[in-house]
Design a protein around this nucleic acid. Structure first.
Lengths: 328, 328
DNA sequence: TAAGAACCAGTAAACGATTACAATGCAGCA
DNA sequence: TGCTGCATTGTAATCGTTTACTGGTTCTTA
């Protein structure tokens, strides 16, 4: 592998000069600059980023730590982060924690050791608790999807309470009264959506049926089994709300298997707007999060912070959208 | 940030000894080893991976370059790669090319500059052509999803020709004769699936209707528009095969919009088995690829190659599975 | 008991870049 | 002419590790 010294020798200059040319620094004659560039071309030289990183303590890699790489929400976010990073000359490392705080911590440590420029993180509950105890990341961080208050960290989220309220109200206003809700457990997100759900019931003077409200892992299997439980309830719900698309998929399956028809026997709405929401029959009414925007905003915030670490922190709350289809 | 010198000083030994302890090398008294470890603990020391990488020319990062991060196929592959990498103490960097060979080349170069341990790649056609011209990656590479022959590279794929043949035959054996096919363009994958499709027609003495066979970008929009074209054909197909799940989603939408019912008016089958295949009505008959296996195998091959670069190359062909549902 | 093997630990040279500092040359000016 | 100051370039230290080499012990074994 050809190194800077080889270029220097071949061009008859010092490594310092080559470095200056490469970094586009001033104080080098255009004639010399051109000569160096020619040699660089000819010898097919590429700077070693590892050495560069070690010496100048800068890196062009940002990381994205997600809690579930198979959740369409995070997929779209990843895409956005990747796009944005690339535009700014950064690359992205993707880590999946599967809501496992041990793995999350391992990832964070590793990224620090690798001296990445910064991290976009959707933290586990455990991590969020640690933040309160004044964790120090030793690197720029922006948090997505989960709420952090009173903390000096950039944060991009949606207003989950308000969103859940809108979605639940939509259900209620279509005449459904006994409403079941399946929420992800172990994240602020699930709790906040539950809160909005409760508020909507209250707004409409509906007494919540606690046996119709479930917290579970936000996975398809769990959506399925929880929905089954709801449907076996002697007084089964007239409508169901799920707090993400994985739960929705499970719920749909359970409803189908129980030979119930949507929306006549039971109505359904969900958070998130995966590809298939419009493909199922009837198409699913959903509350869409601006997933791409979330990723893009987070990446932009992170890159700005990398460039100016003293910048003041901000919390960006993005708008959601109710997409009305036929499931309710 | 505390460095190895600090540990050495605090423990009253040399940096060489500390390094040996950390690397678990022999020739250091257990007493000294323990003392060092204690200091490491106490001072919360973590090795700087960048320096380590520079000096010993080893890295614990592997990269995955995919052509479309939003394709469920690659998502599941990513998950598998991530899992496998983590088990072996590696982390993964994910790059998305969007079938853009410029971006692909940029990514490959960058990864080389970052001195990653190896790369798993689903290459663009352009890249495949370059391979023939004896490209040198300067690092271990395993190629997935696309076919490479006569080339010293590890490769994990499925038998696309055979798979397409099975899927098409299934359609034909249900009595459909005029069959349309929508294939991804710009990859060996699409071409091979087309080939298997043609073979199946031939097996059953069906004359292929060339106006029912389309090549297009493997995206949902394109699946939609191509299907629309097929449906507007005065002699429209009785069955449609799509060569991936994105195309299938588009096709489904087009069929739905045209008020046709599956499978009575038109049958449908597709490659890939996304979450939603069983959620739509009627559920979609598909040819499932062992996505998780693909990712896991690729990661394992790569890691083995990293550990032993002289190892002989192999091509792993994984089995596919026809999942019969109700769309045909 | 002497010679060699095996073990332990330290010194210092890498790895491949960046950059503070010094050295040189040259133009401008008194 | 001699001095100042700037532009240009080179020298060498540095980033935080790993590791080849060296030298000193201790252990075997004939």
């Amino acid at each position: 592998m050809v190194k800077i010294k080889d270029i220097a020798d071949a061009a008859g200059v010092s490594t310092a000069t080559v470095s200056r040319v490469l970094a586009n620094k001033p104080h080098v004659r255009t004639e010399v600059k051109e000569r160096v560039m020619q040699v660089v071309q000819k010898m097919n030289y590429r700077r070693n980023r590892v050495a560069q990183n070690l010496r100048s303590n800068t890196s062009k890699i940002i990381a994205l730590i997600v809690s579930d790489i198979e959740n369409p929400f995070f997929q779209r976010v990843s895409r956005a982060v990747d796009d944005t990073a690339f535009e700014h000359g950064y690359s992205v490392m993707l880590c999946n924690t599967g809501e496992d705080s041990t793995k999350e911590e391992a990832s964070l440590n590793l990224l620090r050791d690798e001296n990445v420029a910064g991290v976009i993180l959707s933290p586990t509950q455990q991590a969020l608790d640690n933040f309160r105890n004044d964790i120090d990341f030793h690197m720029p961080v922006v948090i997505i999807d989960r709420h952090v208050d009173n903390l000096d960290i950039d944060n991009v989220i949606i207003d989950n309470v308000q969103a859940a309220r809108i979605l639940t109200s939509h259900l209620i206003e279509h005449g459904y009264q006994r409403i079941g809700g399946i929420f992800g457990r172990g994240s602020t997100t699930g709790r906040e959506r539950h809160e909005g759900f409760m508020q909507a019931l209250k707004d409409h003077n509906i007494k919540p049926a606690t046996d119709l409200i479930k917290f579970t892992d936000p996975k398809e299997e769990d959506g399925y089994s929880m929905t089954m439980k709801l449907l076996q309830n002697p007084n089964r719900p007239e409508g169901i709300l799920t707090s993400n698309s994985l739960l929705a998929a499970g719920a749909l399956l359970a409803i189908r298997e129980s030979k119930l028809v949507i929306p006549d026997d039971i109505a359904m709405v969900s958070f998130d707007n995966p590809t298939w929401a419009k493909l199922v029959d009837p198409a699913l009414t959903v509350l869409e999060q601006p997933t791409y925007e979330i990723g893009r905003t987070a990446a932009e915030l992170l890159i700005k912070r990398i460039q100016d670490p003293t910048r003041s922190n901000r919390q960006v709350v993005l708008k959601t959208k109710l997409i009305i289809r036929q499931s309710c």
